[in-house]
């Protein structure tokens, strides 16, 4: 798996490169500004990208815009976006830029190396990974149709799915069997009127429905 990495802090860039290469990824290009990122993303041999939202020259949201733009040019191109802070607004924009293969995490989640690497893998495989902080703000919303049809347990399962966890990981987190999780998941799909489809794809749709994208 060959990655494009964009991060303007030299220390963090080196750290991320080390973490990712240690996990078996190849970092093709490690860049620290937006113009170079644009060039790197045009490299056809890149399989996925890990991007910081804030990059030179303007230090605003060019990383995010680059992510959305590249996914318009190369539909389904996996992008993991990292940021010092998370916004639901940005999460929505990323989710709306294509079906799945997108991640949005706080930068400090990198400190949990195994989970971070797992997140990148999941995104590269077409999954959706959202930061727990984004998920919890959505959770705080008043119940709305069609999500108010879900039981509290199902909402918990959906929240963990939105964070990008597999059934096994959800089961471990909730302290139940994988079979029980599977039951909740199929109940969620039924209640959200999601058509029977390939599993990964449906998980993404459930998350999208939840975020009202």
């Amino acid at each position: 798996m060959r990655l494009v990495l964009a991060e303007d802090h030299a220390l963090l860039r080196a750290g991320l490169t080390q973490v990712l290469e240690g996990a078996g990824f190849t970092v093709l290009h490690a860049v620290d500004n937006e113009p170079e990122l644009q060039r790197a993303l045009r490299d056809p041999s890149a399989d996925a990208a890990v991007l910081d939202v804030r990059l030179p020259p303007t230090h605003t949201d060019e990383g995010l815009r680059a992510a959305i733009a590249v996914r318009q040019e190369r539909p389904g191109f996996p992008v993991m976006v990292l940021s010092q802070y998370v916004e639901q607004l940005y999460a929505r924009e990323l989710l709306a830029s294509g079906d799945g293969a997108v991640g949005y995490l706080l930068k400090d989640r990198v400190s949990d190396v195994t989970e971070f690497v797992e997140g990148v893998r999941r995104v590269a495989a077409g999954g959706t990974v959202l930061d727990p902080q984004v998920v919890s703000t959505v959770m705080a919303r008043r119940r709305e149709e069609p999500l108010d049809r879900l039981t509290p347990r199902e909402r918990e399962v959906l929240a963990l799915m939105a964070e990008g966890r597999s059934n096994a990981a959800v089961a471990a987190r909730l302290g139940v069997t994988e079979k029980a999780v599977l039951k909740h998941v199929s109940s969620i799909f039924a209640k959200l009127d999601l058509p029977v489809d390939e599993d990964d794809h449906r998980r993404v749709r459930a998350v999208l429905a939840w975020l009202h994208v």
Binding site: T60, L89, R92, T137, R142
Partner: peptide, 23 residues
């Protein structure tokens, strides 16, 4: 707020609105 720097008043207000518990 960083989103104010990124997106200006309109975007930042939209971001606040999204974090509200009501629509």
């Amino acid at each position: 707020p960083p989103v104010l720097a990124d997106r200006g008043l309109g975007g930042a207000v939209q971001a606040v609105a999204l974090d509200m518990p009501i629509p």
